[in-house]
Simulated scan of single mutants.
Amino acid sequence: MQEKKKRQEIDLYKPIQRYFIKEGYEVYGEVKDCDLAAVKEDLLLIVELKLNLTVDLLIQATKRQKLTDQVYIAIPKPKVTKKSRRWRDICQLFQRLDLGLIVVSLESQRKKVDIVCHPPNSEFSGYKRVNKRKRENLLNEVNGRSADYNVGGSTRTKIMTAYKENCIQIAVYLHQFGELSPKKLKELGTGEKTSSILMKNYYRWFDRVRRGVYILNETGTHEIAKYPEIVQYYISTIQKKEQSK
C-alpha cells in the first residue's frame, strides 16, 4: 500500500499562485518573511500559508497588516462543514480581524482554491495601519526580482532575494564581458547598489584587479552555475540590448 504523502505548506503555494496570476497579479514567494506577496498596480496583497489555524498564525497575520490591509491566511480545506457552528465562528473571527481566508482542496486533483472571505477593500480602508517604510521595503524587494524563483511556505531552503539576484546579474555580466568598472556595470543595468555589492563582496565572488575594476573569480563562476534560469535571463537581456543597437 502506497504511503500517503505528508502535507506541507508549499503544497498550498502553486494553486494560490495560479489563482492570483489569473486575477492579474504578479506573484512572488518568500518576500521579506511573507510566504506569498502579490502586486497589481498599487495593490499589495500578502498570503500566509499554514496547515493549521493557530493563535500564533493569527498574530502573525495581524502583524502583516502593517504592510497592507490585504492580508489572507491560506489553509487546506478543513473537514468541518461550512454550515457548522465552528466554521461560522471561524469566519466571524476573520471578519472581526479584517483578515481574508483562503482554503485549498489539496485532496482534489484540481487543487481548487476557495476565497471564504476577503479583507476590507483597501480603497476604503486607506491603509490606516500600514507602516510605510516596511511596505516600501517589501515592494522594493518584489521589484528587485526578475521573476518568482521561490516557493512560498518553504523551510530549510535557500531563498532567492533581490540582493542575491543583483549579485548574480553582476556576476553574469563580468563573466560575459570580462573585467568591468562599477560605472560600466551600471550602464548595463545592474543598479545603484553595484559599487556597494562589489566592495562588500558578501559572497566572495569578485576580485578587484586594480582600482575600480573587477572580475568574476572561480568561486563566483562555480556558484552562479547553480542558478541557470537566472543566468540565462540576464544573458538574454544582454543579447536583446545588443540587437537593439
Results as ranks from 00 to 15, higher is better:
46 I>Q: 08
77 K>Y: 13
23 E>D: 11
120 P>S: 14
35 D>T: 01
43 L>K: 15
14 K>L: 13
37 A>W: 04
91 C>L: 15
62 T>N: 12
116 V>R: 06
83 K>H: 06
74 A>D: 03
66 K>E: 14
42 D>A: 09
89 D>P: 00
101 L>M: 07
30 E>Q: 14
105 S>P: 00
82 K>P: 04
90 I>C: 00
108 S>E: 12
56 D>P: 12
49 L>N: 09
98 D>G: 03
40 K>Y: 14
100 G>A: 03
113 V>M: 07
90 I>W: 09
81 T>I: 06
106 L>V: 05
76 P>E: 11
28 Y>W: 13
72 Y>L: 03
112 K>Y: 02
28 Y>M: 10
56 D>C: 04
14 K>R: 13
93 L>D: 10
57 L>M: 14
98 D>A: 05
10 I>T: 15
91 C>N: 04
19 Y>N: 08
80 V>G: 02
53 L>W: 05
110 R>A: 09
99 L>G: 05
30 E>W: 02
63 K>W: 11
67 L>A: 03
97 L>E: 08
108 S>C: 01
21 I>T: 13
84 S>Q: 01
65 Q>A: 03
102 I>V: 03
118 H>C: 08
35 D>P: 07
100 G>L: 07
93 L>F: 09
22 K>S: 14
23 E>Y: 01
68 T>H: 05
116 V>H: 09
104 V>N: 06
90 I>G: 00
22 K>L: 14
41 E>D: 14
74 A>N: 01
106 L>T: 07
97 L>A: 10
87 W>T: 05
83 K>Q: 11
25 Y>L: 03
119 P>L: 08
31 V>P: 01
118 H>N: 15
100 G>W: 10
22 K>M: 09
21 I>H: 05
114 D>C: 11
44 L>N: 04
66 K>W: 07
118 H>A: 09
15 P>W: 09
108 S>P: 00
32 K>R: 14
69 D>G: 10
34 C>M: 06
60 Q>S: 11
58 L>W: 04
32 K>Q: 11
117 C>A: 05
